[in-house]
């Protein structure tokens, strides 16, 4: 799938490839002050290619702000954020454009353009390239629609006609249309009922495997963590109080972590995780 896009720059794709284990995002000594309130103090975090990093933390702990820092939507007051080796806010415009073509973002409320149909929403990033023929765009959009489990006739609907779960799927299709290497998810399962939330997590998991994605997500949902997170970063008191694999983080003594995983500690043991994910994976392969 990943070789069918990247229009007009096929020779550039090779040098832009990241190998598993390469750092994709580097957050270095970042401090943030927003509206006179200190949110982060000396954060250090690295996301390597191919992994799924989940950022958790209480309300107001600055999870979403950290995500926005990584997206360049917010500037850090101190320190720097590098994505694909480029310093956000300090690199060349062409480099920044390049970086933006290599990531996809799923916003919490979907952020679909309400004036455009589902089809046009998904096609927008491709149309902005101004170099793709119409029928190729249509074909790519239809492939993505199918990939996220939507029907071709959903393409003519307006965002206002969609259910919460469908909005997330359309938004996911839009964020994946450029075949990114890096995917940001802001609360992917917030506002979904348990069944669609499980379905959506399965979808992300299968897409992640299929497209070799690096995923950074902010979440509140313990089930999502169990299903896909390779590493967990915990934000509290302006700092990253822990980051590492789930089974290590869960045993930290910090009160926030205790409360967050209350009653789930056993599930986080390595072998339980593995069997949970295998079950999810196999159910995923059953015909829908």
């Amino acid at each position: 799938m990943s070789d069918c896009i990247e229009p007009g720059s096929t020779e550039a794709v090779d040098e832009l490839d990241v190998r598993p284990g390469d750092p994709v995002i580097e957050v270095r000594h970042v401090g943030t002050v927003l509206g006179g309130v200190r949110i982060h103090k000396d954060l250090n975090l690295e996301v390597t290619a191919g992994e799924v990093l989940a950022i958790i933390g209480g309300s107001g702990s600055g999870k979403t702000t950290l995500l926005r820092l990584m997206l360049g939507l917010e500037r850090p007051s101190e320190g720097e954020v590098l994505v694909f080796g480029h310093k956000l806010g300090k690199c060349e415009a062409t480099d920044l454009a390049q970086v933006r073509h290599r990531w996809g973002v799923l916003f919490q409320q979907g952020a679909l353009f309400s004036a455009l149909t589902v089809f046009d929403n998904i096609a927008l990033p491709l149309r902005e390239l101004k170099s793709l023929p119409k029928d190729l765009i249509a074909e790519l959009v239809m492939t993505k629609l199918q990939q996220v489990g939507l029907k071709p006739e959903d393409g003519i609907k307006m965002p206002a006609e969609l259910s919460g779960g469908m909005i997330k799927r359309v938004s996911l299709a839009r964020s994946l249309i450029m075949d990114p290497q890096l995917l940001f998810l802001d609360e992917p399962t917030a506002g979904l009922d348990p069944a669609s939330s499980k379905g959506f997590v399965q979808l992300i998991e299968s897409l992640k495997r299929e497209m070799a994605l690096t995923v950074v997500m902010v979440t509140h949902d313990v089930d999502t963590l169990f299903a896909i997170a390779d590493r967990v970063a915990v934000l509290a008191d302006q700092h990253l109080i822990a980051h590492g694999p789930l089974e290590l983080v869960v045993n930290q003594p910090h009160p926030f972590i205790r409360n967050f995983f209350l009653g789930h500690t056993d599930r986080c043991a390595a072998e339980n995780l593995r069997s949970y994910r295998d079950a999810l994976h196999h159910r995923d392969e059953l015909p829908a």
Binding site: L71, G72, R100, F107, A111, F113, S114, P125, E128
Partner: peptide
């Protein structure tokens, strides 16, 4: 303003538009 509220402006920014 509504595009700001619904994060559509952010979505445009991250797409590089």
């Amino acid at each position: 303003g509504v595009m700001r509220v619904t994060q559509e402006l952010d979505a445009l920014s991250v797409m590089g538009i």
